[in-house]
């Protein structure tokens, strides 16, 4: 009963979330393009599906993915599980299961991500076949996995997030200078594409749960940031992968320079 009420409540709020895009689409269609909407009934039914789907999805997140991430974080950092007697001096290495979980979840969710497959196919076309589809997917998934490991390590140790991200930017900048021109825009895009709608809530909950459970950390200051790691690292791995592919392809430029 509670679940049903929650669903209804979320559904009502979801209307407000979809109103702007509905107004924009129909507004521009009528005012500027001045043509009727083709298949209006189907479009309206589509909007209805989106509304109901969004309500179910958000309710499901609250019921499953958020608690799951937080429970995993709590269980994996439990001193009893780690076999730690003195909780006052825990070494960051003691949390090795956290890093293992972060790696596994990052790799598995990314390799299966459909949006990434689309990017990989495009990269394959752009590079004239020098960048293999599977190789790129593997590189990006590895990037997300390593990013999450480093991100969870940062939460454990409590170092400021921006040190890592800004260093990451610098590495990306240096890579950009040497990477094949054609791949640059695609590589930058891949950073945003890899973190899917299902992965983001789980990873966020994992980070918040870790910061909550590890002594001396606060959810507010240390809990966020995992998604930033998961978005930045694929840029590095895609650029690196393109560079390696170019180097292997006989050190010829992959294509003509931009513009």
């Amino acid at each position: 009963m509670n679940t049903l009420l929650g669903l209804l409540h979320t559904g009502m709020r979801t209307i407000w979330d979809l109103l702007p895009i509905a107004l924009i689409i129909f507004g521009f269609q009528f005012l500027y393009l001045q043509r009727p909407v083709p298949n209006l009934k189907k479009v309206l039914l589509g909007f209805f599906y989106v509304l109901v789907g969004l309500a179910f999805f958000l309710e499901g997140l609250e019921l499953a993915l958020f608690p799951l991430g937080k429970t995993m974080a709590a269980q994996l950092t439990d001193p009893e599980f780690l076999g730690i007697v003195h909780t006052e001096n825990i070494h960051w290495l003691d949390y090795y299961w956290v890093y293992a979980f972060a790696f596994a979840i990052g790799y598995a969710t990314t390799v299966a991500e459909p949006a990434l497959l689309a990017v990989a196919i495009k990269a394959n076309e752009v590079s004239g076949g020098a960048i293999g589809i599977w190789g790129l997917r593997n590189a990006v998934a590895l990037g997300v996995a390593l990013g999450l490991v480093l991100g969870t390590w940062r939460i454990v140790t409590g170092y400021p997030l921006h040190w890592f991200i800004i260093s990451g930017y610098l590495i990306v900048l240096i890579q950009t200078v040497f990477a094949p021109r054609m791949i640059v825009a695609l590589a930058y895009d891949s950073g945003g594409v890899t973190t899917s709608t299902v992965t983001v809530p789980l990873v966020a909950a994992l980070g918040l749960g870790l910061a909550h459970n590890i002594p001396g950390r606060s959810a507010l200051v240390d809990g966020f940031g995992l998604i930033a790691f998961a978005s930045l690292f694929p840029i590095m791995t895609v650029l690196a992968h393109a560079q390696i592919a170019q180097w292997r392809a006989g050190r010829q430029p992959l294509s003509s320079p931009e513009n």
């Binding site: 895009i21 689409i25 189907k42 479009v43 309206l44 039914l45 589509g46 909007f47 209805f48 599906y49 989106v50 509304l51 109901v52 789907g53 969004l54 309500a55 179910f56 999805f57 958000l58 309710e59 499901g60 997140l61 019921l63 499953a64 993915l65 709608t197 299902v198």
Partner: peptide, 18 residues
């Protein structure tokens, strides 16, 4: 189950309309 239903409907609806 909710996430699966929700995401399916959501994507289906997007493909139909938006």
């Amino acid at each position: 189950l909710f996430v699966v239903i929700g995401l399916s409907l959501f994507v289906k609806g997007l493909e139909m309309g938006l």
